[in-house]
Design a protein around this nucleic acid. Structure first.
Lengths: 115, 115
DNA sequence: CTTGACCCTGACAGCACTGTCAGACCTTAC
DNA sequence: GTAAGGTCTGACAGTGCTGTCAGGGTCAAG
């Protein structure tokens, strides 16, 4: 399928679809005339990228993670990295939450002192 | 005092001190030769900016907030905005925490499924 | 008068995307 | 064959800071 259709089907903008490719996350075939030609596998990949991105991951991180989940037999992917990256990401999120909580406390303190 | 000293005293980089000024948060006097000349009031302002920024606020937001806390009689500042902005900010932080929590859940789910 | 430390302005770079525009080609259908 | 709609590449803009560099002036000490 062409890029416009993929965009419609996945809800990812044409711009971002091209960007993913530029970042090495996607490598669709090309027609003779140079049009990108996506298959169902690519569509699935885009959905995964979208999901992982929705979980706050950088494209860079997703790129490292993608080879581990590309095929559908999760248990057999030779990816020792997977757990490591995932764990790392959770830690990162926890840090951010911690920072925000501290900020919240400070602000709430201000608010209370203005009563 | 000159910018270098203020930087040392507050721990805010010279670069950022000038940036604050560009954004309209600070307006130090100038010596004849054009050097910025900061007083104690400015130093106090910088500390406030730093604190508010540390609480995750945008300079833009801080700028709106600053007039409300500049002088030292908090109760009398004619700033109905203060509470509003502060409340808004807390709400914003809560949203971000919520988003991150959701991401965390997703990632933890992945992690569990890889066991 | 020279040296070194400090200050000035202006501009470029980087992060991690995301939108938009320009100029040009392709495809499909009427 | 022409018009509409889709696609291509490349580049600039904007977010919210923050570092760094270039080219040049200032100030105090020796």
């Amino acid at each position: 399928m062409k890029i416009g259709e993929l965009s419609r089907r996945t809800g990812v903008s044409v711009r971002m679809l091209r960007y993913y490719e530029g970042e090495g996350l996607l490598a669709p075939l090309r027609t003779n005339s140079g049009y990108r030609d996506y298959g169902l596998a690519e569509e699935e990949t885009v959905r995964r990228i979208k999901m992982l991105g929705g979980a706050g991951m950088t494209l860079e991180t997703i790129k490292r993670l993608l080879p581990c989940v590309r095929n559908n037999d999760p248990a057999f992917t030779p990816c020792n990295e997977l757990r490591k990256i995932l764990t790392q990401q959770v830690g990162l999120i926890d840090e951010r939450i911690e920072t925000l909580s501290q900020s919240r406390t400070i602000l709430a303190g201000f608010l209370a002192s203005v009563n």
